[in-house]
Structures are given as C-alpha cells and as structure tokens.
C-alpha cells in the first residue's frame, strides 16, 4: 500500500487557500516558520491573516508586535471581510507590544545578556501557556535580533524559543526582514538554519512590472511546492496564482 504523500503530521491550516495547497494542507503543527522578505512584500498581512483564520477556527492566536503598535496594526486588518471584532473581545486574538514587555522585564539596555535572553524566552512561553495560544506571530524577529547582536546569542534565542513554542504545541511564524535583492533569508544569517520552515516573500521585477511573490523554501514534516507564486492582498485575504514561467526574468 502506498504511503500517504502528506505524511502523518497534523496540519495547522493557514486558512489561505493557495498557501494551504502549496503546503499540502497547511503548516505541520508545532513548527516554527520564518516568514521572510523585504519591506512591502506583504509579510505582516499574511501573518495577520494566519492568526485571524486560527481565531475564527477557535484557536487562541497571539500577535507579538515589535516594530508597530497594536492600534496601528488593527487599523490595517479591519478592511478584511472575514475579520470579526469579537475575536478581540473574546480574547481569541490577542495583540501584545514587545517593547512594553521589555519595559516590564527591565530590559532597557541596547544589548540583551544571555540571562535576559532566557528571561525573554521564559516570558513569551509563559504568555503562550497562560493564553493557551495555538498560533503565534512575532513581527519581527529581526527587531529582537538587533538587541542580541551576536550570532551566538541569536542562535541561542531562536533555538530556545522554537523549542519552547513547539513543546507548548504552538505553531509559530517569526517574521524576518531582509534587504531588497538579498540572497539571504535573514539579516543575521542564523535564524533560517534553526527554523522548521522558510517562506520567502519578494518583489519580482519583470519588464518594469513589480509583482509580489511567495515561495516556500523549506518546511519540515511535509511535502510542499517550491515554485514561486504571485500574490495579491485583497479584502478577502491573500490570493495566490502561479508565476507564469514564460515571462520569468530568471530571478
């Protein structure tokens, strides 16, 4: 008898039709995925949609914002037709600003020590446990890494965080920022080696047209397409279609 192609891993369906198709049903549950790309590629929108669909599916979802405050983010998600404000009231969808957490923990220095990294991981884990979070987004992990400075500290942080979240049965997306036209998947070159998955969002220029693209580079625990897809951010969410090869610039 043939083995099922998708394996036995339970899936966390993102709710984004095209992406779930690419991933043969969704992100394997408990995976920590790096969602990487340069500015304006749609990372935050996709991550928010992942959480909203989770919350609508009765999975507690948590957005930890590092760069933008929650109010500004909320203003951006209201146009989504599937967004329900009651998700916020019921606590199914929770927004936390990490700078406020830094202040509470007394992490005021520009660089975190190893002890402070442990404390930060413990604090995030504790929040995830307390809220019974099943889906987590940290936007962005790059901003956290700026406070870690060295590759050793970044490795330590991402490893510990990833393990803690996985142990808590939480499927996580860590948003990572890279410079335009960068060949790396993260600014510090460390995070992607540790993550279970990498989803790359880019701007593809073709004959003067700028297309937003998405490509799943790796995803442990599942088969997946590695092709490039073009996406659009719409009030019904992220829509994806295959990139037409006949016009590919070869990038």
């Amino acid at each position: 008898m043939m083995e099922p192609r998708t394996g036995d891993r339970v899936r966390c369906a993102t709710g984004i039709d095209g992406l779930d198709t690419i991933l043969y049903g969704g992100i394997p549950t408990d995976n920590t995925v790096i969602l990487t790309g340069s500015c304006g590629t749609g990372k935050t929108s996709l991550a928010l949609e992942f959480l909203i669909h989770g919350a609508l599916n009765n999975e507690n979802s948590l957005f930890i914002s590092v760069t933008e405050n929650s109010e500004k983010l909320l203003a951006n998600i209201i146009p989504y037709r599937f967004f329900d404000k009651d998700l916020l009231k019921s606590g199914k969808l929770v927004f936390v600003d990490l700078p406020a957490m830094y202040d509470r923990l007394g992490m005021t220095k520009a660089e975190l020590s190893m002890e402070e990294i442990d404390l930060l991981v413990a604090s995030i884990s504790s929040l995830v446990r307390e809220l019974n979070t099943k889906r987590l987004v940290i936007d962005s992990i790059t901003s956290v890494c700026y406070k870690l400075k060295t590759p050793e500290k970044i490795r330590d942080f991402v490893l510990k965080l990833s393990k803690a979240l996985s142990d808590l049965r939480c499927t996580s997306i860590l948003v990572s920022e890279v410079a335009p036209h960068s060949n790396a998947y993260s600014l510090f070159g460390v995070e992607e080696a540790i993550a279970d998955g990498i989803m790359l969002m880019s701007n593809l220029e073709r004959r003067g047209d700028l297309l937003r693209t998405l490509q799943v580079i790796k995803m442990r625990g599942t088969m997946h397409s590695r092709a490039k897809y073009v996406l659009d951010l719409t009030p019904v969410g992220v829509l994806l279609v295959p990139l037409l090869k006949g016009g590919s610039a070869g990038t």
Binding site: D209, L211, V230, L231, L239, V241, P242
Partner: peptide, 20 residues
Amino acid sequence: VESPTMLENIMLKVEYLIRM
C-alpha cells in the same frame, strides 16, 4: 491592473471578483 503584461494580476483580480 497596472498593465496588460501583468497577466498574473489579471488572474488574481478575476479570482477576487469571483469570490466577491
């Protein structure tokens, strides 16, 4: 759609309108 060369975006707009 910004240009008739953006064929993927035509597909995306059609898909969006079908869903709407």
